[in-house]
Design a protein around this nucleic acid. Sequence first.
DNA 1: CCTTAATCCTGGAAGC
DNA 2: TGCTTCCAGGATTAAG
Length: 280
Amino acid sequence: MPELPEVERVRQSLAARAVGRGVRAVEVRRPGVVRGDRSTTALLAGHRITAIERLGKQLAILGSPVDTTMGEEPRCLCIHLGMTGSLCVVTNDNSPRKHIHVVWHLDDGSRIEFRDPRRFGGIWVYPNKAELLKHRWRHLGADALRISPAELYAALHQTRRPIKAALLDQEIIAGLGNIYVDELLFGCGIHPLSRSDRLSLEQFRGLVPRMKRLLRRAITAGGSSLRDYVDANGQAGEFQLSHRVYGRRGLPCRTCGKALSHTRVGGRMTVFCVSCQKRY
DNA sequence: CCTTAATCCTGGAAGC
DNA sequence: TGCTTCCAGGATTAAG
């Protein structure tokens, strides 16, 4: 499930292969995944890809018209990979893979394939980046790699929700998902059911740098590949090998050896160590 | 305010 | 072996 590190990996690998390229044609095989204007022009046909940006777990693909007489409007696509989405750049006519919903044909003969078996992801079409910022991205909190301890504390000290539920809330902080929240809370020694308002600014001064270090290490390792995740080159990550709690319920804690506990928080599987993580 | 559950969806795993 | 059932979960929405 692509969270911030995986989405950042996709951003980097996709940018390396697609920025500067022109889009010759766009194929929409399953229109339902596209929200808004489904015309191929709105989906960047006849445009040059100028940048690929990220906020939390979402990507924005920006494009300018190749023929400037057509109008100057720089287009913007927002792509959310959901649980199983991927964006791959391919050059050959290999095995026709299932669940490819949208294909961008580029001017060097390669193509970008948006594949999403479970279809929790999607593509949101905007006339420009300002509109994306004004609507869809307005509801997102600060990016997890940029947020400050004071900012996070300000958002959390006034809610009684369990810390795990609050950290998963993209309106509070953008980018964390089930894997990295469990890993982070274990790394900080904080029980996932701790009340958010019981944590001090001092604790966030410890948590935020740890979070950024965790996410950066995961990015360097290529992200966590559990089942579907691959970057734009089809490359899987290796950070799953470093997980200390996610997916390890019942297994011995790597710090104290005690069997890891599990519960559900906000409907999500939560794994933690009852002796290494203190409940506030 | 906060929680739970249902919804979307497929494929892998587990059970019989 | 082959069938059925369950489960995973990001975000949204409705209901308690």
